[in-house]
Nucleic acid binder design. Structure first.
Ligand code: FES
Ligand code: FES
Lengths: 165, 165
DNA sequence: TCTATTAAGGATATCAAATATCCGTAATAA
DNA sequence: TTATTACGGATATTTGATATCCTTAATAGA
């Protein structure tokens, strides 16, 4: 069980886009170079973010991507779900229905109107995971990065990005 | 991102074993038939549980599996980690190190002594997921099942299991 | 108008992991 | 002695993640 590497890429790309000036765009090519990942494949992740309404793509020269909403209105969960999907990590295949003892019982007596108790525990854990991710916004991440990334690297990267904008 | 189907199987098997009388064993063959899953493959999951010290296997006729600890001392997390492993769902590949701006900087100025802020958020969510799973024991699950599974099915299944013990 | 650049998406190839089966070994109860 | 069982190694099959390629349409700038 492992999230796609696209998730790490998408989060880092959003962090960069959050630092962009108003109405500036950064193309896939540069985002790929900045993170050292294959441009064509990263493009798929960015398309998913675009589909989810998290980023906006603009065509033509001087085009590229920017955030579609303020960074304070985008959470980690939004980004993770855009790339990874919204399905719970635990999928119940209803193996309880395979119990041979049910065979000779009336459908009523077999009684599985409510979800399996085991699945409910697993889904609750999934909910806790998503709640945790939904509690951190891109704006908060940007603040943390400003505090933890060394100033020279931060400044140099900002200039590098600005030059391609 | 999806947990293995083995997780659902292992949890249901443990729920059955938790209902066993003292010093009774249930073999893989019957656990597989009860849940309608391939015996040989289920065996792999049970071996993982055995390896983790959650269940105990006994050889020979009238052998099989039983819990290695009281049901109150076994959590969902124990079972999930036995089957799925302990690695976080989010794996950081350190793409921040691919930033071309780092190239001309001293290793000190590049400064990544601390884990990436993005990874820390993802790992915190993983921790929340595991904490949730660690908060429910097999004993509590058994209680819930007694309340929610119809009495006739519960009784019939108990008899079916007892007969193969 | 023409050209270069870009997002978007379809098609397809490659690779890794999950899923599943098969077999041999050793232990054990009857 | 025989049947039964856990255990582990080897291997096949299937699925999904990863990655590349190509076409289309939009757009900015020369
Ligand atoms: S039947 Fe799917 S978790 Fe119980
Ligand atoms: S470098 Fe891996 S999450 Fe930032």
């Amino acid at each position: 069980m492992q999230l796609k590497n696209q998730v790490e890429w998408a989060l880092h790309c959003c962090a960069i886009l959050a630092g962009l000036g108003p109405d500036r765009h950064l193309p896939t090519k540069d985002l790929a170079e900045l993170h050292g990942v294959p441009k064509e494949y990263l493009s798929k992740a960015l398309q998913a973010l675009s589909q989810a309404g998290i980023v906006e793509g603009t065509l033509g020269p001087s085009g590229g991507y920017r955030l579609a909403r303020p960074a304070g209105a985008i959470t980690f969960l939004n980004i993770v779900e855009a790339v990874e999907g919204r399905q719970s990590s635990f999928v119940c295949t209803e193996i309880r229905k395979n119990n041979p003892c049910r065979g000779s019982m009336s459908p009523a007596a077999a009684g599985d109107s409510r979800p399996c108790a085991i699945a409910r525990v697993m889904w609750e854990a999934d909910r806790a995971w998503r709640a945790s991710l939904d509690g951190v916004t891109l704006a908060e991440l940007a603040k943390t990065l400003e505090k933890t990334v060394p100033a020279p690297l931060l400044k140099k990267t900002a200039a590098w990005v600005e030059a391609r904008t």
